[in-house]
Write a protein that binds this DNA or RNA. Sequence first.
DNA 1: TATGAATGAGCATTCATTCAT
DNA 2: CATGAATGAATGCTCATTCAT
Lengths: 200, 200, 200, 200
Amino acid sequence: MNDHSQAVAEGPSTRDTILTAALACFTERGFHGTSVPAIAREAGLAPSSLYRHFESKEALVNELYRSLKGRLMSALAPALQGELEPRAIFRRFWHRLVQLARESPEVIVFLEHHHHGDYLDEASQQLEERTFEPFYAILATEPARAALAPLPPEATMAIVWGAFSGLFRAHRLGHLDWDDALLAETEDRVWRAIRRDESR
Amino acid sequence: MNDHSQAVAEGPSTRDTILTAALACFTERGFHGTSVPAIAREAGLAPSSLYRHFESKEALVNELYRSLKGRLMSALAPALQGELEPRAIFRRFWHRLVQLARESPEVIVFLEHHHHGDYLDEASQQLEERTFEPFYAILATEPARAALAPLPPEATMAIVWGAFSGLFRAHRLGHLDWDDALLAETEDRVWRAIRRDESR
Amino acid sequence: MNDHSQAVAEGPSTRDTILTAALACFTERGFHGTSVPAIAREAGLAPSSLYRHFESKEALVNELYRSLKGRLMSALAPALQGELEPRAIFRRFWHRLVQLARESPEVIVFLEHHHHGDYLDEASQQLEERTFEPFYAILATEPARAALAPLPPEATMAIVWGAFSGLFRAHRLGHLDWDDALLAETEDRVWRAIRRDESR
Amino acid sequence: MNDHSQAVAEGPSTRDTILTAALACFTERGFHGTSVPAIAREAGLAPSSLYRHFESKEALVNELYRSLKGRLMSALAPALQGELEPRAIFRRFWHRLVQLARESPEVIVFLEHHHHGDYLDEASQQLEERTFEPFYAILATEPARAALAPLPPEATMAIVWGAFSGLFRAHRLGHLDWDDALLAETEDRVWRAIRRDESR
DNA sequence: TATGAATGAGCATTCATTCAT
DNA sequence: CATGAATGAATGCTCATTCAT
C-alpha cells in the first residue's frame, strides 16, 4: 500500500514544499518582485537546491501556473455535471468559485496576478485560453442562448468573472464579509446581469 | 500666455516625458519588472538624469499612481454633476469609465496592476481608499438606497468595477469589440445587477 | 594639441586599464580560468564597473584578441617592406617576431593560448585566418617558390611558427637564454629547414 | 588470462570510462572550461559517482596528465632502441611522434594544452621535466654532438617539438593533409634544421 | 558501487543610486 | 540640466563537493 514496507508518515515532497513556498511569494509580490533566494528561504532550503527540482525560476512559475489553473478547472468542472439547466449551471459555477476562493484564496490571487506575464511559456498560455472552454461550449447551446442575454459569450464571461473577482478582492481587503447570505445575494445579482430579461 | 516671453512651441516637460515613459513601462511589466534604465531609455535620457526629477524609483511610481488616480477621479467626477437620479448617475458613470478606458487604456491597466503594491506609500494608499468616496456617499442617500439592491455599498461597487474591469480586459486581449452598442448593452446589464428588482 | 586646453599628463583610460588587467589574467589562467572579479581586482575597479566599458566577458576577450592580433600583424608587416629577396624577408620576419616576444611576451602567450576558443566571435576567427595572409601571398610568388623547399605553404608556416613558439616557450620557462647569438643561430637553423636545398 | 575465473567480456573499467570522458572534455575546453557534471555526463554517470574514483577534479586531471605523459614517453621510448646513430634516432623519434598523433591526437592536444596549469601538482610538474630526459641524455653523447648543430640541447628540442606541434595543429585545423609523403618530407626538413651543417 | 539530495561558494551580470563634471 | 563613471548590493544560476541511502 506504501512504497516502503512501513507506513511512514511522509511529509510533503521537497518539490511540493517549493511549490507552496513559491505560491506564497509570487502571490504576495509577483513574479519579478520575488527572488529565488526568497522562495528558498520560505521553503527552508538553500537557493541552489531549488535548481535540482526546477530548471529555472521561469519553469517554476509555469509549473505553478499550470497546477493552479488545473485546480481552478477541476473546481469548476462539476458545475457542468448534473442538471444542465442554465440557471442551475450558473448557480453551481458561482458556488464552486466562491468555495475555491474561500478554501484556497491564493489560487485566485495568483491566477489573477499572473495571466499574461511574458514569463509564461506557450503551454501555459494555451492553457489560459482553454480554461473556460467547456463553459463557452455550454453558452453556445440552444437552452443557454434562450436563457441568457444576447451578449457575446466573452462579454458574459467577462461580466461574471469580473464581478466575482471584484467581490473577491473587496473581501480580501477586508471591505466585505463574504458570508453565505452575501454569496447567495451576489449570485442572484450576477445572474440578473446575464439572464435574458424575461427569464427567472 | 506663456511663462516665457516668447511664444516658443514647448514640448512636454522632461518630468512629463519621464512620467509617460514610466507609465508605458510599468503598465507593460509591472513595478518590479521595470528597471530605471528601461524607463530612462524609453524617455530618451540617461538613467542618472531621472534622479534630478524624482527622488527614487518608488517616488516615481507613487507620483504616477497619484497622478493617474487623479485622472480617474476627475474623469468620473462629472458623473455626479447634473441630474442626480440614480439610473442617470450610473449611466454617466459607466460612460465616463468606458470613455477613459478608450482614450487612455494605460491608465486603467496601470491602476488595476498597481493597487496595493508594497512600494506604494501612505499617501497613495489613502488615495486608493478615497477614490470612490463621492460615489459611496451617493450610495448612502435615500434615492439611491431606494433604487438599488440592498447590497453593502462595497459589494455594489465591486460588482460594477469588477464587471467593467473584466470587460476591459477582454477588450484589451482582443476577445471583444467594445463598440457603442456593446457599451450600451453592458451598461444596461450591469445596471440590472445592482438595481432594486422592481426598478427600471 | 590636446583636447583639453592644458597639457595634462593623462594616465591610461579606464578602458585600457581593464584591457591590460585582462591581458595579464587571461595570459596566466586562460579565459575560463579568469573571473570577471579577478580582472576587476587587477584593474582596481569594482566588478560591475567593467560592464560600463565592455558588454560582457566575451566581448572583452574578443576585443583583446583583436587588439593583440593587430599588434602581431603590425609588428610583422615591416618584414615585407624593403628588399623582397626571400632570405632577407625571412630574416626580418624572424627578428621582428623575436623582438615582439621580448618586448611584449604576453602578446605571444595570449595569442598562443587563445586561438580557437569557442568564446571567439566570428570577427575574431576571421582575423585569425587573415593573420599571415600577406606572407602566404609572398610564399606564392616565383622568387619564394624558387628559394624555398617545395612544401605546402601551410607546412612552411607551421614549421616556422612552431619552431619559434617552441623556442619562445623554452625561454619563458627559463630553459633557454634567448640572447642575440641564439636569435641569430636559431634564425639560421629555421631557415635551413625551409630553404630549397641548394640555396644559401 | 583473466583476473576473474570466468571469461567474461568485460568492458573498460568505470575508472577508465571516466578518464576517457575527461580526456575528451579537457581536450575540447580546457581544465577550467570543463565542469565535473560535464565529464560525468560524457561518462554516463552521476557527478557524485566520479568522487568514488577520483578525489577531486584536480586529482583527475593530474592522473590523466600523468597517464598521457606516460603514453607519450612509451611511444617515444622505442626510438632509442636499435641503431643509435643520431640520424636514425631522429627518424624513429619523428615517426613515432607522428604515429601517436595520428592514432591518438587527443593525447597530443591534451598535453599541449595542459602543461603548466596551476592545477598540476608537484608530481605532474616533475614528470613534465622528465619527459625528454632520455633524449637530452642522447643529445649529450659524443656522436650526437658531432652530428648536430652546436645549439643548446633545449633549443634543439624546442625546434623539433615546436615544428611538430605546428604541423600537428595545421593538420588538426584541416589546413594540411599529413600523409606519408609529407611526413617524410617534414622529417627531412626538421632534420636539416638541427643537423650539423656538413652532415647528411 | 552508484546515486539523488543538498549546499556554500562563486560567477557573470544587472540594478538603483551617487557624484563630479 | 544632463551625463558618464563608478559602485555595493543583489539576482539567477552553476559548480565542486559531501553524504545518507
